[in-house]
Design a binder for these strands. Structure first.
Lengths: 146, 146
DNA sequence: TGAAAGTCTACTTGTATTATAGACTTTCTT
DNA sequence: AAGAAAGTCTATAATACAAGTAGACTTTCA
């Protein structure tokens, strides 16, 4: 049931990009800044951000003074979207996946006990991850008891 | 977020062993019966059942007329136990694992947004899987609307 | 024009998953 | 006692995937 490093790094980067800067304006950050702050290998992070960009979650600017910023406000980007882009379907087994269904080879899917339970697990994960936006995360961190 | 084949096969086998036989007595099944019914490579299943046995969830009998049966009543074996034995910790990232904690390298774990959310995910999965026994599964399948 | 940034693709390397093989032990039946 | 039927155990192979590295390319700005 693991999240890959790819997914983990991507989430960290997106959360960092969603964190409001001191002046309250949306953050624009360079790969290097993120990779240093979050201890992520630079070239690896590069690929990850590129995927996120190509999926429409990030915008970027090339050249001097360039960098990455969120393509949408943080409350419109869910963690579920990010994880699906980087790690694929949330479902533990393909036969309960909404986005990548595949039969699992059991005699009868309708009466497959494993499928019933794994469906619940998928839903629990999806509800949580799709129901949590980047804004939710930064807010929660910011309002943490000390 | 995937369940390995090992985990999947193990769960299928355990559910099959938990399903009451026609006479209502606890099922004793041979590797071959399970592997044929569930379409699992025999030698692979053998290893899986052995792990489950060594972990105390199964008993076995060698020789002619031998086979496997549950070591405890189905309501005392949770899916969480099975998955942990075969696939390791349920937590998506190690820094929120109860059974295999490891620091994740973020500057401060207490204020790590990712950790907070993944903690929720871990709990959701654990609550579901630890809260569902083999008996729950077979019961649910048996009382399925047609 | 050149340095600073992102873009893109290919490659490498390591490790985990998914098996397969085969020799061994126990148990039952005859 | 023999032999077949079952599980036990360990090693190994084959594959896939994750994680990371490399390098040539493009865009932008001063």
């Amino acid at each position: 049931m693991r999240l890959s490093k790819r997914g983990e790094y991507g989430l960290r980067a997106m959360i960092m990009l969603a964190t409001p800067s001191a002046d309250g304006r949306p953050s624009v950050l360079q790969i290097r800044e993120i990779s240093q702050h979050e201890q992520i290998p630079g070239k690896f992070l590069e690929q990850i951000l590129l995927s996120l960009k190509n999926a429409g979650l990030l915008h970027s600017k090339m050249g001097v003074g360039g960098g990455y910023h969120l393509a949408k406000p943080p409350n419109e980007i869910s963690l579920g979207q990010i994880v699906r882009i980087l790690d694929g379907p949330l479902a533990p087994v393909k036969c309960v996946s909404q986005m990548a269904y595949e039969p699992c080879g059991c005699p009868d899917e309708e009466t497959c006990g494993l499928r019933l339970v794994m469906g619940d697990v998928r839903n629990a994960i999806a509800n949580l991850l799709d129901g949590t936006s980047l804004a939710d995360v930064t807010l929660r961190v910011h309002s943490l008891p000390e």
